[in-house]
Design a protein around this nucleic acid. Sequence first.
RNA 1: GGUGGGGUUCCCGAGCGGUCAAAGGGACCAGACUGUAAAUCUGGCACGUAAGUUUCGAAGGUUCGAAUCCUUCCCCCACCA
Length: 430
Amino acid sequence: MKSTVLKDLDRRGLIFQKTHDELDEVLKHSQTLYCGFDPTADSLHAGSLLLLVGLANFRRHGHKPIALIGGATGLIGDPTGKSDERILLTDDILTKNANALGIQIQTILDRAMGMHPDTVEGKVEKIPIVNNADWMKPWSFIDFLRDVGKHFRVNSMMQKDSVKSRLSEREQGISYTEFSYMLIQAYDFFHLFNEKSCSLQIGGSDQWGNITAGTDLIRKRTSKPAFGLTVPLLMTADGKKMGKTENGALWLDATKTKPYVFYQYWVGRDDSQVVDLLKKFTFISTNEIDELAKADNRGELQRRLAYEVTWLVHGKDVADKVVAASRMLFGEPIQNLSDDDLTALFADVPSTEIQKTDLAQGVGLLQLLSETGLQKSNGAARRLVEQGGAYINNHRIDDATRVVTLDDLASETMLVLRSGKKKYHLIRLI
RNA sequence: GGUGGGGUUCCCGAGCGGUCAAAGGGACCAGACUGUAAAUCUGGCACGUAAGUUUCGAAGGUUCGAAUCCUUCCCCCACCA
């Protein structure tokens, strides 16, 4: 008989591997668990989203998640999956990043509790955000070696994939600093085990080595069991890391990746993966998803997925607006609208400001396309226009010499540029 | 340390004195078809409206002319020690 969390996670395909089967038994009672996030940037990106969803699922089943920000480990750099030694970040930046991540994680996890209440079993608790710098920094090197280092065999550390791959590349190698990373992560788990009775760590499948280092340490020093569980690392249908776009990572922060763009990323997922993604990233019950999948929904699943995920990350209001904007954008020409309409519709579409006087004189369409970043050069913009992929206010423009003027405004001060089927850009007069 | 093979445009990979802005594939961008899908087909893909300008690890050199030849340097890979 499985605990409800594991049963649910399993159905959603969120379990990659787990340390012991007894975990199931243990999870029948409310447990404290944690997941670590490295403050390498001031926002998480879609790659980490699955971990947040993982934590949220536990919480929705009545368990108590802790989010750990790796203020200390961030100073070191995790060698996992990295072929090069990392560049060390400064203390200042890490602190700033850690604060930003804390807020972001808190917000998203709280929001998750409010979604699909029918599948929530647990009570809402504020989740603690901890920073391992708080307990790691006071250690002296000698003490750490005596109390923690003593419990690790270098022999077994070298067996870990993250280390092994770096050792076999004799040019790069691995620094002593990065080699020590797993000790710190292991100690984190031990610390939380003692201080917060945290018995489970979850992480991406690439974190397996680091997680088991923690469970081993706990077993050696306390003779008590601790558990680890990893979620799968997702790939897109064409074999890329999930959440990566041509323009880099898909950030969860609205200023780094516009919600509209974020939403569109999910709408664009391949048919072969939507059902899977719905199960993994949303809190809709798996039965309901199976029902949805049976109907011949022509893209409806993608829109549902995109809406749910945008809701989780940016909130319901933003998600609703983005949906409205998308409907508008994939439909009629844009005209006879007011600034307010457009602003509401396009709040989360990328935009560029332009001087009123410039537009009064007229600005070349090609120039506008390249300046807004819709195209990377004038030449590329020209080709786009010649191929019929350029639009002003949803009207196709096939004249490369076209000059954009005040007459092109769709509302008092705005006009909408479009490249291809789906890339929109708002031009605002100032 | 020794010997051999390499470094080509986002990636893989041809080219081996002019016809090379550089074959082919992938990725990517448009168009058609569709469901804001997939598959397929078509066009594009250094910069430039063009003339032309800057590219083939780096710097020099030989030549009317170099990605292609020479020199030095940097870096990779294979085998040997």
